[in-house]
Write a protein that binds this DNA or RNA. Sequence first.
RNA 1: CGGGAUGUGGCGCAGCUUGGUAGCGCGCUGCGUUCGGGACGCAGAGGUCGGGGGUUCAAAUCCCCCCAUCCCGACCA
Length: 567
Amino acid sequence: MRWSKLFVPTLRDAPADAEAASHKLLVRGGFMRQLHAGHYSMLTLGMRVHSKVAAIVRAEMDAIGAQEFQLPTMHPMGLWHKSGRSELMGDEMFRLADRKGTELALGVTEEEVFTTLALELSSYKQLPQHWYQIHTKFRDEPRPKSGLLRVREFTMKDSYSFDLDEAGLDASFDLHYDAYVRIFTRLGLSAMPVEASSGSMGGTESIEFMVPSPAGEDDVVRCPSCDYAANLERSVSVIPTVVDEAGPDAPVRFATPGVRTIAALEEIDGGAPAERQIKTMVMVLDDEVTLALLRGDHQLNLQKLQDATGAAEVRAATPEEALAAMGANPGSLGAVGVELRVIADPALAGRTNMTTGANDDDWHLRGVDVGRDISVSEFAELRDVSVGEGCPKCGTPVEIVRCIESGHIFKLGRKFTEAFDAKVLDPNGKAQHMIMGSYGIGIDRAVATIVETYHDDRGIVWPVAVAPFEAVITIASMKDEAGVAAAEKIYADLGAAGVDVVIDDRKARAGVKFADAELVGIPFRITIGKALADGEVEVTRRAGQITERVAVDSAVSWVVDAVQAAR
RNA sequence: CGGGAUGUGGCGCAGCUUGGUAGCGCGCUGCGUUCGGGACGCAGAGGUCGGGGGUUCAAAUCCCCCCAUCCCGACCA
């Protein structure tokens, strides 16, 4: 390609509303432009990177025997009613109607459509089937942000496996796991597999591939000395046991005027340290008012509560709802004698002589024995893990790392095959619902994640495998006829050698060309200018900005070798 | 959904307090000089001042409503 013909609108200043490095650099480098919130136009440079990322994903999916499909993105709403996900997705789904009034939806994922196709599978002999596509998805995110990292319209590689039984699913899952490891390695991303919540979709095993980055939105709990890693919403930790003193035979009411917080209850006469308090949170789970109990110094993780209960919607009760259900205002609530469903964190199991609200404003109870005084419906992990708590595997203090979720694989189970009645005959001639796995990688998010990982103060530093061009030939002066001729020769030879090369033949000053090449992030640059007098050109590696001079005649082989070594 | 901020030429911004008919830097076009790290001079092009309504002789500026975008939080197969 000739840069003089390309549309690469680089900017000296980043748009004022860009925060994330990838957002700024992809816009400044002329890779993309925002159309509106959460929707980006990919320009030619962006599309080149996008295509290269997609090609790597495609190659690795093909390598495990997966078959590429392309499904509609606009679906009849009936499909989503059938799977029960219309309600589940709620406002996250873009919904529309056609001229006849037929309800339609834009695909958030494609389990429904793939499962519809799987109805044509009839025998276990056809299994496993691994089907995938690389296609547009829509999610009406409440808050698009950070450029490509969180958008409403995006490209995702989504694949689905169909197996006869759990053993088959395990094998399909492992194939994908290995493919994902290879994909992220090729993309240059150090993605770590972590245990994750499979969310409201159920399913058993769920693994997210997480790339550490301050631009991320997920917290991963990781052990520095063993292989334990889990999404915060799935993590557990070991904490020291609190030894309780013996308490009274029954809870004792005591006045706590004005006390509304854990901290205030620690301070007041007759109060208790936070770890000796029971925090009572009034939650609404699919319209059922429920109490979530935690140790006073612990934080509730909503996703854990959702996972533990299987509720589709989990939210905190409003103060009015809490008052109606408990007879007191938040700050004075407790579970003693309450008839509602009560879910308690295991850190409260067996605890005695604790302090909690009395369900009477300005009153609390002390001497509360969890087993004796509270009818706990169930115990479930509800609390957030904190830095420094013990690794559940080896006890080492854990750390928490901010990450970008780059991939997610999980065992879906039979939810969809049962909803759509997708069955095959097993070896005994008996019809069985197939079991599914679901696997996703966001292509655009991967592009942004690569930029987050690989940039410096001059611009992007693309890994060769995904760079918009592998090499750029920079002609210092277009008036230098010998230079132009030498550059054209190298350009032709590199092209013939299969290198993805662009020649910067713009009538611009050298400084402009250097700055653009660096901002855009092309891995190798051949500069043809003053060195030519000595029969040489300069070759520069973008990573580290290392320049050396080589003979004109060996420039092509130098670049070919460098590119091949890095591909 | 709660809190905060912003909307003026392609990008970055000033002007608004105190109304008088729009300006700066970058970019863009032409000519000249320059030519290895985002050159310089001269001459130009380009703006419904987010939208609607109102006040006023007069609104980018004051008032009301709406919209959009960004940030923090909530939420997020």
